[in-house]
Nucleic acid binder design. Sequence first.
DNA 1: CCATGTCCCTGCAAGC
DNA 2: TGCTTGCAGGGACATG
Length: 306
Amino acid sequence: MPELPEVESVRRGLAEWTTGALITAAEVIDHRILGTTSARRIDPGLAADFTDRIVGERITGAERRGKFMWLTVGGESGLLVHLGMSGQMRVHPSHAEVHRHTRAVFRLERGEDSTAEAAGSNGPERYDLRFIDQRIFGHLSVQPLALAHGRLVPASAIHIAPDPLEDAFDLEAVVDALARKRTPLKAALLDQTVVSGIGNIYADEALFRAGVHPLAIASRTRRSRLVAVVESAASVMGDALAVGGTSFDALYVNVNGESGYFDRALLAYGRAGQECVRCGTEIAKLTVGGRGSHFCPTCQRMPRYR
DNA sequence: CCATGTCCCTGCAAGC
DNA sequence: TGCTTGCAGGGACATG
């Protein structure tokens, strides 16, 4: 399940493989990956419009805010890529066998100018960029860029808060936003308008490391504890990024198809019934905000509110 | 405005 | 053995 560290690993690969490349062709194999949930119903014009907008454009960079990632194309727009829970962006030789869950294919061309057929030139390098998504929770779209929190981001991502790895990240602002939430802290951490990039795995890990119960009400939690939770989220995601991210169920791989190793470092997520590494208590699991939440009942005490 | 609920989608695992 | 059911999850949108 790609969260910030996994998306950043993919972004780095995309930056390396696609910057400066020309998009010479694009094919949408499954139109459901286009647009948002309402738009993805049935709109035959969408796929044609999508490909028309990017074919012939040159990719100038790969950027990310939280779990939203985009390739800058033609200077003024972005090819937004959200991996959802099972999306992958893979770089393949054009002739490579097409994987079963491939939903879109972009043909890229990079390197020498096609006019330069001079001495010893092999011509431009050609390869595929493929969007693969088993569960179709991910999506692609071409968006105008708009200013939000000091950066140009795709229009549909302007409501997203900066993530902990950005210059614009403001710990005090995040804590202020959390303090206004009357919801369980776990749910507030997953709210991408408060802080972006945190998903279910790292929310559980951050709460465990900070020793805070997932059901603690954000607005009733001491600021010092909110700070600890947010700092834990930032550090645990940084640690995960350093080893290429988490591949809990093999749905996440980078552009080269490689998995990350952080699943071995998870202390709470997916460990229900196992012993807490700190105190030996069985890790418990409950549902918060519709998401499975793993925690240690001893290390993460539930406050008593009056 | 804010909080909560529903839906989208597929593959796997558990249960009968 | 083979079916059905439940579960996993991010985010858009609807509802209270």
